[in-house]
Every structure is written in C-alpha cells, then in structure tokens.
C-alpha cells in the first residue's frame, strides 16, 4: 500500500514539475508583468494601463478580431476538407491503402513548418511554379500575385492544420459501424441526410477535439501568417512579438498574451456550449 503510493508519487513528480515549471510559473510571471507599468514619473507601479492600451488603440483590437475571425474560418475550412478525406480513409479505402494514405498525410510534417511554408511560397510567388504554368498555358499574360494575400495565408494555415483534424476524425470514424450507414440508407435517407443525421453526430467528439486543436494552433501560429500573409494581414501573435522583441515592452506583450489566452478560452467555451458538449467528454 505504502509502496504503491510512493511509486505513484514518483511517477507523478515529473508531470507535476512539468506542469509547474513550464505552465504555471511562466503564466504567473506573465500575469504579474502584464499588471506592471511605469507612471508619469517613471516609477514602477501596478496598473491596468497595458490592458487599456489594447482597447483604446484600434490597430490592436482590430488585429485581435481579425485573428479570431480568420482562426475560426481556417478551422471551418479545415473541417470541411478533412471530413470527406477522413471518411475516405476510414471507410472507403482498403486497409493497405489506408496506411499509405495516413503516411502520406504525415509526410509533410517530417519537415519543419518553415520549409513547408517556403514550399508554398515557391509555388505561389510571382515568379513561382504556378505562375509559370499559367503563363505557359496562356491563361494569363502577366504573372498574378498570389502570395501575400489573406487567401494565401488561410491556405497555408489550413494546410498546416490538416493533420490535426484528420487524425481524430479518422479514429472516430473507424468506430462508426458501417451497418448504421446502411440502415439509414435502407430507411430512405440520401447521402446528405446520412452525413447530417448519422455521420456527423457520431463524429462529434472527434470534430470537437480536432477543431479545438486546429483553432488553438492557428490562433497561436506565427510563421505562416507572417510569411504568407500580406503587409496588412497582421496576426495577433505578431503584435505580441513586436511588443516583446521590437518595442521591448514586456509588460504590454504579457497583457496581449493574456488577452489571446482569454480569447481562445472564450471561443472554445462558446463552441462547446453551441454543440452542447463538455470538455471532459471530448477529451475522453
């Protein structure tokens, strides 16, 4: 009895240490930092000024709303593409093809995000591969600028997120009994109705966990929006980066970090509320 408790403590210790050192400690530090500032005399004082700045300066909260909106859009698009892909992998493809397809999905993640994004840039830029072929085929006279637009940025984000949506969806679809689909078909349902009434409700936990992961990864992404987005498609993480690195204003940066945390929590909470689910159920 005693021994097992000791073993439990030993197992738990690294987890607890990890949680404390890497999650709790920095956040407490950030929180404290976000509430500090200098008054007119240059004295360090407790203040809410860092948070006030956010609301009074339109460029901050505009970026904030934009980021949230695009993260939601990216999640939605990823979901729409991942759904049929996962269905094909889980239900249509033969077992051997199934494995190959999963590996194919995984393959891009073998290289770093930076390389992946550069891959897209090579494809899309003015002197890029796509433009080369478009001109060869005579579809355009002048090269089209496809990079540095919101569309290009979302494309990159969706591409980066795909795997994290497909994996939970495939596993949850694997557990869907084929005969349920056949039963619905037999009872007179068409394709679309089967998706709406059987497949999507069954996949709900997978959809939610996939959506949460994709949403959070997108919201916190820095590289893709920075490299593929245009000059005026600022991402909120870039604002945080600017505060920390460019302006060297750690207090302001911390406040922004906390606002981003609040935002992602709020949207996920809303999403769970709307789909009538609990976080615990999704995780299990």
């Amino acid at each position: 009895m005693k021994g097992s408790r000791l073993a439990f403590a030993i197992f738990l210790a690294p987890v607890a240490a990890w949680l404390f050192l890497l999650i709790v400690l920095p956040h407490v530090d950030l929180l404290l930092m976000s509430l500090r500032g200098k008054d007119e005399l240059g004295e360090r004082v407790w203040t809410l000024a860092n948070y006030m700045n956010f609301f009074t300066e339109p460029v901050y909260w505009l970026t904030f709303v934009r980021t949230a909106l695009y993260a939601v859009i990216t999640t939605a698009i990823t979901f729409c593409i991942a759904m049929p892909v996962s269905f094909y992998i889980a239900k249509v493809a033969r077992p051997r093809v199934q494995g190959a397809l999963m590996v194919l999905l995984l393959l891009p993640f073998w290289v770093s995000e930076l390389v992946r994004v550069y891959g897209w840039m090579i494809l899309l830029r003015e002197s890029g591969v796509l433009n080369f072929f478009l001109m060869k085929l005579g579809l355009t006279q002048k090269p089209v600028e496809m990079l540095y637009t919101d569309a290009a940025m979302i494309l990159g984000l969706v591409y980066t997120s795909m795997l994290f949506m497909v994996v939970p969806l495939v596993s949850v679809m694997d557990s869907l009994d084929d005969s349920l689909i056949e039963a619905a078909y037999d009872l007179g349902a068409g394709k679309w109705t089967i998706w709406r009434t059987i497949i999507i409700p069954h996949c709900k936990p997978g959809i939610t966990s996939g959506a949460i992961v994709v949403f959070m990864l997108t919201l916190g992404n820095y590289l893709t929006p920075n490299l593929m987005g245009g000059k005026n498609s600022l991402w909120f993480t870039e604002q945080i980066y600017n505060q920390f690195i460019a302006s060297f204003n750690w207090n302001q940066g911390s406040a922004f970090g906390f606002l981003l945390l609040a935002l992602s929590s709020l949207i996920i909470w809303l999403g769970l509320k709307l789909s009538r689910q609990k976080l615990g159920e999704v995780a299990s």
Binding site: D177, E182, A183, D186, L187, T197
Partner: peptide, 19 residues
C-alpha cells in the same frame, strides 16, 4: 437504389442509431 426500394432490412446486429 436501396433507399428507393419498398423493402426494409433488420440488420444482424440491429444497427439502431445510438445518437
């Protein structure tokens, strides 16, 4: 197609919709 046939099938494992 199966959804247009005037027959219905009770499946070996019933296939009731759990949701």
């Amino acid at each position: 197609a199966p959804n247009r046939r005037p027959v219905n099938l009770v499946f070996q494992h019933l296939a009731l919709f759990p949701m």
